[in-house]
């Protein structure tokens, strides 16, 4: 049997979900034998590949680039997993949504900056007016809440998916865990 093609993506989040993913101790060896990591912050790959079996997405959709990426991911992925609260609810990144984008940028890069008080505009993605859960942009197949979701939950989820089962997330994690 060929190995499952797995991708992980890091959008607007703190990378905590990826830390949790890597935190599964020896189980990562078991997992590694079953999968091929085709795209991830931990893999040096510039382009999102085609025919991905499972993609775990950490982080909310905040910028035009995030949205662009999500659409490409959806087109090329069989099963899309929203990993963690940021992807599912917007979580901490969405706390900016009560304010205007300009206000926030000004606060961060001008008011609170000591040196070089200016808002970066070149070479950085443009922020959307609102940071949103990824299922508002693309269809999501599996939701794994948690901040971050426990490693075990992530492992079980991926293992279930690889075995062709619908993961049962319910009892092992929750918003904010």
């Amino acid at each position: 049997m060929s190995k499952a093609r797995i991708a992980t993506v890091w959008l607007d989040g703190c990378s905590g979900c990826h830390m949790s993913l890597l935190d599964m101790d020896e189980k990562i060896i078991t997992l590694a034998s079953l999968i091929e990591m085709v795209y991830s912050p931990t893999v040096d790959m510039k382009q999102y590949p085609q025919n991905v079996d499972v993609c775990l997405i950490e982080g909310a959709a905040s910028s035009d680039e995030d949205i662009h990426k999500l659409k490409i991911i959806r087109l090329n992925t069989k099963c899309l997993v929203a990993l963690g609260d940021c992807a599912i609810t917007g979580n901490v990144p969405s706390m900016r949504n009560m304010y205007k984008v300009e206000e926030i940028l000004n606060r961060a890069y001008v008011e609170n900056a000591v040196l070089q008080q200016q808002i970066p505009r070149i070479g950085v993605p443009v922020l959307q007016t609102r940071c949103r859960p990824i299922h508002e942009i693309v269809k999501v197949d599996v939701f794994v809440p948690g901040c971050p979701p426990p490693s075990e939950t992530i492992y079980n989820c991926v293992a279930d998916l690889l075995a062709g089962k619908t993961p049962d997330i319910g009892a092992t994690t929750r918003f904010g865990k």
């Binding site: 609260d85 599912i88 609810t89 901490v92 794994v144 997330i169 929750r174 918003f175 904010g176 865990k177």
Partner: peptide, 28 residues
Amino acid sequence: NHVCAVCVSNGHCELQAMAMKLGLTHVR
């Protein structure tokens, strides 16, 4: 704006517990 992760009641919140109890994994 319910942000469980940074909430002082995280883990002791009835709303959060209810979501878990009723199997709410995301808000449509």
